[in-house]
Simulated assay, not measured.
Amino acid sequence: MASLKFFIRTQLSDTSKKPVNIRVRLRDRQKDTYSKTQLSIPAKFWNQKARTTRTKISNSGDFAERDWYKDQLEALERHILKSYQDGGELSKEWLSECIEKFRSPESFEKKPVTLFDYISHFIEQSEQSINPKTGSPVHYRIRRDYIKTFDLLKEFAGGRVIDFKSIDLDFYNDWINFLQTKNIGSTEEPKYYKANTVGKFVKNLKVFLNKATEDGINTNLRYKSHRFVKIQVETDSIYLNEAELSRIQQIDLSNRPYL
Rank of each mutant, 00 (worst) to 15 (best):
L209N: 03
S246F: 02
S58F: 12
H139S: 10
S186W: 04
K211C: 07
K211S: 11
Q250W: 00
F63G: 03
I147D: 13
D151N: 15
L39I: 02
R247K: 10
S58Q: 13
E242G: 00
S129I: 01
W94E: 05
F7W: 08
E127Q: 13
K17E: 14
L245W: 01
L12R: 10
S83P: 11
F7M: 04
A195D: 11
K17I: 04
E106M: 06
L73E: 10
M1D: 13
N177W: 09
I57T: 10
S58D: 13
R51P: 06
Q180D: 14
R247A: 05
N177P: 05
T37W: 09
W94G: 03
L81I: 02
S58I: 06
V20Q: 12
D28I: 05
I80S: 02
E244W: 01
L12Q: 09
F156C: 02
V198D: 11
A2R: 01
S91H: 03
C98Y: 14
E214D: 15
R160A: 06
I57A: 09
K165C: 01
R160W: 00
G87C: 11
G216D: 13
N218V: 02
K133I: 03
H139G: 01
V138C: 03
T235I: 05
I123F: 03
R143A: 08
K36M: 04
V198S: 07
E155W: 04
Y140R: 03
G185R: 06
W94A: 01
I184N: 10
I167R: 00
L259G: 01
T33M: 11
L26I: 08
N255W: 03
L39P: 04
S254T: 09
K133D: 11
N47M: 06
N220Y: 04
D14S: 15
Y140K: 04
S237T: 12
N131K: 04
I251A: 00
L115M: 14
N173D: 15
T33L: 08
R9I: 05
S129E: 15
Y84P: 12
E189V: 00
E242V: 00
R66I: 02
E189Y: 05
Q249D: 02
E188A: 02
Q232P: 09
N241W: 05
G185H: 06
H226V: 04
D117Y: 12
I248N: 00
T197A: 10
G135H: 11
G135Y: 04
K56F: 13
I99G: 06
E214K: 11
K154M: 09
S60D: 15
P19C: 07
D117I: 02
N220C: 06
W46R: 02
R54V: 14
K101Y: 12
Y223E: 08
S35H: 04
I238K: 14
I123S: 05
I238L: 04
R51L: 14
D32G: 05
K82F: 07
F201G: 00
K110R: 15
F164L: 08
Q11R: 10
V161C: 00
R144F: 11
I119G: 12
T52R: 14
E65G: 02
